[in-house]
Amino acid sequence: MKAIRVAQYGQPEGLTLQERPALVPGRGEVLISVAGSGVNPIDWKILSGAMKAFIPLELPYTPGVEVAGRVAQLGDGVEGFAVGDEVFGFIGIVGGYATEVVASADRLAHRPARLSALEASGVPAAALTAWQALHEQAQIKAGQTVLIHGAAGGVGSMAVQVARIAGATVIATASARNHDYLKSLGADQMIDYTQTPFETAVDAVDVVLDLVGGDTQARSWAVLKAGGVLVSPVSPPDAAQAKTVGASGKHFATRSDGAQLKKIAALFDVGKLRIDVEVLPLSGAEGALRKSWARHTRGKLVLDASR
């Protein structure tokens, strides 16, 4: 097998595609022949060294949290999957930028038939984050208004669709070049954050999903109605600010959940969800991480494990 290896924390320079020993699944695990690996902000955050106090890793390591591919071998005790099945999943915090991975079976689901393997490889982390943010943290309801910051990215584009399916009115912040794209996903109103402060264009929203953090999150309290909720997987919302405006703030880390991913797969199969991907070769992981690091991607970047 081959895998991208990170020898030291820092910038993406020096990532290399290396030959590695073949993997063997343990009890409850599945060996996957990888078709594609999704690229996510967590990948470059770990690579930067900013998270090493919270996520200690033995160097060198292989980045990547999500993949899609074919089941090559089953460990003891695995049920619900067979060799040859097409699967996808949020496999863990590292290991995905490779031609083979081993993952716990409960982190996986069968790939949606409507998606190619490369498209599916960009779904799990983003879709689970959006789903858990809106359904579990915000407890979104039909008729509510949801403001989504960073709406054109991987999580944001999924969140726009998840909120729309739930029956919410969706307001999205994004640069003007992404407005038609967001409208096609179901956003009801778009705000060009480069030209218009969002707090001058909206107020009294039920839910803010903050995928940006910093000043954007701080300014978001002004547009929440009393009893509303600000949810962010990026950084913890200020509890004092929440109390001042009579709202709540929630911070969470996305968890792998094969059963939840199965529900998401069903929505893809009936055409209620879609994903837009840009495909780069696995050997070009350095460039992909640089592009993700710039924070201006539309949809998802994925790596083709065959190249």
Rank of each mutant, 00 (worst) to 15 (best):
K300T: 06
G75L: 14
V94I: 14
A174H: 07
A240H: 15
A240I: 12
P12F: 00
T173Y: 05
Q132S: 05
I275P: 03
A172T: 00
V229S: 09
H179P: 02
T16F: 09
F252T: 08
L303R: 11
A82N: 12
A218W: 11
E13Q: 12
H110P: 11
A3M: 02
L209G: 11
S283A: 15
L273G: 09
L211P: 03
S104N: 14
G156F: 11
S292L: 01
A103H: 09
S116E: 10
V208A: 08
T129P: 07
G122P: 03
R274G: 11
V170G: 01
A138E: 03
K2E: 12
L289T: 00
L280R: 06
G186S: 11
R295H: 15
G150K: 02
D206G: 10
L108N: 05
W221A: 01
E286W: 02
L47W: 04
Q137T: 03
V6W: 02
I91R: 03
G89L: 07
L224G: 00
T254S: 06
V83C: 12
L289Q: 07
A226Q: 13
G75H: 12
T173A: 03
E79W: 11
R255E: 12
M190W: 10
G10F: 01
P41G: 04
Q217R: 12
A218F: 15
A98G: 14
E199Y: 13
G227D: 12
L74S: 07
T196A: 11
G150E: 01
G167I: 13
P233W: 05
T297Y: 00
V24L: 15
G284W: 07
S104T: 13
T196F: 14
S306K: 15
A72N: 05
S220I: 03
V202L: 12
A259P: 08
I275N: 08
L134T: 08
L185I: 13
N178G: 06
G36V: 06
A305K: 06
A187K: 08
S157A: 00
M158Y: 02
K250F: 00
D43L: 07
G143N: 00
G28H: 08
V229P: 10
L185A: 08
A130W: 04
A103W: 07
E79C: 14
M51I: 01
G80Y: 13
V223W: 07
H296A: 09
K183T: 06
H135Q: 14
F252H: 07
K52M: 01
A226E: 13
A151R: 04
A113I: 05
W44Q: 01
D192T: 09
V162W: 10
T216I: 13
G64W: 01
M190S: 14
A247D: 02
D192V: 05
G213S: 03
W44P: 00
P197F: 09
W131A: 02
D85H: 06
H251L: 06
A127F: 10
V160G: 01
W131Q: 15
Q18V: 13
G153F: 02
P281G: 04
A68D: 01
V170T: 10
Q139R: 14
I264C: 04
D192C: 09
A133L: 02
L31G: 05
K263A: 14
G299T: 03
